[in-house]
Write a protein that binds this DNA or RNA. Structure first.
Lengths: 193, 193
DNA sequence: ATGATTATTTGATATAAGTCAAAAGTTTTA
DNA sequence: TAAAACTTTTGACTTATATCAAATAATCAT
């Protein structure tokens, strides 16, 4: 049962921040393309530069890095979010982040070059980027606060609130590394011990 | 020995990201004004909305919030950085952050309304905001990583590296709350125990 | 300068979370 | 559908950091 993706979600997301002219809509449509990832599939290998940004229509992607041979989840992204390896994408150099699909995931992507074209020709795209980044910013600050001053249990509660729509779909081990605690501790927290 | 501030630093900062036209320079000059804070002085009270953004020419500002009656340092800002309470400033609502001066600090400030005027009339200002936010972004991600997977000692080392130019000027208690550890632990780390 | 306030250090003890090891449960694949 | 490969849970023990309390040290205000 493959739904054909539509640009509905992505356009609605833009319109939360800017008004989309017909011209910009058509230029966007020309440059975004659907791509589907199977559960477990690698979306970005840290050995490559991140040259595409993916907008999630359905599913969950995970951004992670490897430390001491273990995968450490940096964050999870769900519907209506853009995913790339930020530093790599913006500065066109390698970074440490891998991206994979936790579920079968439908996305649209845009190439960095096309995005640059849009930035250069549509000032409202710059505004969109500034404003949408601003919201992510707030989440980051909150997360830093949550990481510092709360017990493992409080951190897990905060995670549940923050990811209320998807937290139950993410394997325990990945959640533990996201929170910076061991699997065993998280398992005990869940069991209420 | 009061130096009169010049717009040198601030213009140079803009030019790291965009080309400043004479027109934009003059509009900027009209809208930024110097203000000096004495050590210990409150720059922003969390009971007010953050309506000014301060660019530091000299000195250190601290952004903090209050938890269980204690001041928790969120971050420190030094020369050539913009400081405001991000969510409050952008969304024109109250947030939890106070800002104060750790040293006598010279800044320029711009009002949010003036900034909006510049965003509306100079697309390159949108670009400046997007690009300069991007660099801050990377630091945030790194910090989250550092908070999760490292011992108190490693976190302190990371802090020293990250704030190499100013870390020795920040009181121990403030650093401890920034790192999410107790003063006692930080004191012992410093003593090498 | 001098007492008062504030910041830092040191010591003794408690505790949350880590580690290692193995068992139980779940999902994948051939 | 059974075996293999993961993932989660449970148990026993260890350790880093917190807490509480008090002693120094540094800074501030009169």
């Amino acid at each position: 049962m493959n739904n054909i993706e539509t640009t509905e979600n992505i356009f609605a997301h833009f319109e939360k921040f800017i008004k989309l002219s017909e011209d910009l809509k058509s230029e966007l449509s020309k440059r975004i393309k659907p791509i589907v990832f199977q559960k477990g599939e690698l979306v970005l290998d840290a050995n490559n530069i991140s040259k595409k940004s993916y907008f999630i229509n359905k599913g969950i992607l995970r951004t992670y890095f490897i430390k001491d041979g273990k995968e450490i989840s940096e964050y999870f992204s769900g519907i209506n979010e853009w995913v790339n390896s930020p530093k790599s994408f913006m500065q066109r150099e390698k970074d440490i982040y891998y991206i994979d699909a936790i579920e079968n995931t439908e996305t649209f992507f845009i190439n960095v070059n096309d995005l640059v074209y849009l930035f250069d020709n549509f000032p409202e795209m710059e505004r969109y980027a500034r404003l949408s980044m601003g919201t992510v910013f707030g989440h980051f600050m909150e997360r830093i606060t949550s990481m510092r001053f709360t017990s493992a249990k409080e951190r897990y509660n905060h995670f549940q609130k923050n990811y209320s729509n998807i937290y139950h779909r993410i394997p325990l081990g990945m959640v533990a590394s996201y929170l910076g605690i061991t699997q065993e501790t998280l398992s005990r927290i869940r069991a209420g011990k």
